[in-house]
């Protein structure tokens, strides 16, 4: 049996990924602040990824449990609203959970040999990497950092560890997290179901792809954002920022 690790596994995209990996026969460890419920088909480790001591303790425990064939660093939080309406500490928490924790965990596992040779690591960034995200500036910053961390370690990890590193850039998903941070009047039906995103991401990661943008709609957005970054960020402002009726963190 092969081992898999998923952070943010109790809900949303992480849950869908953890369940899919478990169904494929992997021995899955899920990390989350919240308990996934007794019915979850994977083991659970409770951890607040914003807390450095907790992350260090988690890394030590995972190194003992490993090595992992599949590691999906998915956990993320957001802070939406006008940047200046959100406390500085909340922005710092977004950086800690979305950028620092996955980077620290990945490096710690790699250093200790807890990533199996021939295995893979997937970082879950965001489509905002291509579009920009007015209304979630710290979230966008953290997800950009994570995307470029993944890109930076891809070659050295392949060369020295035999580990394939991918970054996934999902667009809006039909999750509780997205609903909490979405602007007023947003249509949840237009968002991708998390189990569809999970299937696409895992399939592309298995092919060793560096960049995974799940779904045709998201791929068009990514392309548009690369060709006309300012125009697409302007559109994001109208779609998201101008419609935000509250700050949520």
């Amino acid at each position: 049996m092969t081992r898999a690790l998923v952070t943010g596994a109790s809900a949303g995209l992480g849950r869908a990924i953890a369940e899919r990996l478990a169904a494929e026969g992997h021995d899955v460890t899920g990390v989350d602040r919240d308990h996934p419920g007794a019915e979850a088909p994977f083991a659970h480790i409770a951890c607040d990824l914003a807390d450095r001591d907790s992350v260090d303790a988690l890394a030590a425990r995972l190194i003992e449990d490993g090595p992992f064939d599949q590691t999906v660093l998915n956990a993320g939080i957001s802070a939406t609203g006008p940047f200046e309406a959100i406390p500085a500490k909340a922005h710092a928490r977004v950086m800690a959970v979305n950028a620092e924790a996955p980077m620290v965990l990945c490096a710690a596992l790699a250093r200790a040999g807890a990533l199996s040779r021939g295995g893979r690591v997937v970082f879950v960034s965001s489509l905002s990497h291509f579009t920009g995200y007015p209304g979630a500036a710290s979230y966008a910053a953290a997800k950009d950092a994570l995307a470029v961390y993944a890109r930076s370690i891809r070659k050295p990890f392949a060369r020295t560890l035999g580990v394939t590193v991918s970054a996934a850039f999902p667009g809006p998903l039909r999750t509780d997290h997205a609903a909490r941070h979405a602007p007023a009047g947003a249509d949840a039906e237009k968002r991708m179901a998390p189990d569809v995103a999970a299937r696409l991401i895992l399939a592309e990661a298995a092919r060793g792809r560096a960049v995974i943008v799940p779904g045709a709609r998201a791929r068009w957005m990514a392309l548009a954002g690369r060709i006309a970054p300012a125009a697409v960020t302007g559109a994001m402002r109208r779609i998201v920022y101008d419609k935000l009726d509250r700050a949520v963190w």
């Binding site: 920009g132 007015p134 500036a137 966008a140 910053a141 950092a145 994570l146 961390y149 930076s152 960020t233």
Partner: peptide, 25 residues
């Protein structure tokens, strides 16, 4: 992206994304 100092490259990409969003906001 830079394999020699990944966290540095990541942090600078983060600044790019921060500026992109805040410039609009």
């Amino acid at each position: 992206g830079q394999g020699l100092f990944p966290a540095y490259a990541a942090s600078k990409a983060g600044l790019h994304g921060l500026a992109r969003a805040l410039r609009s906001e």
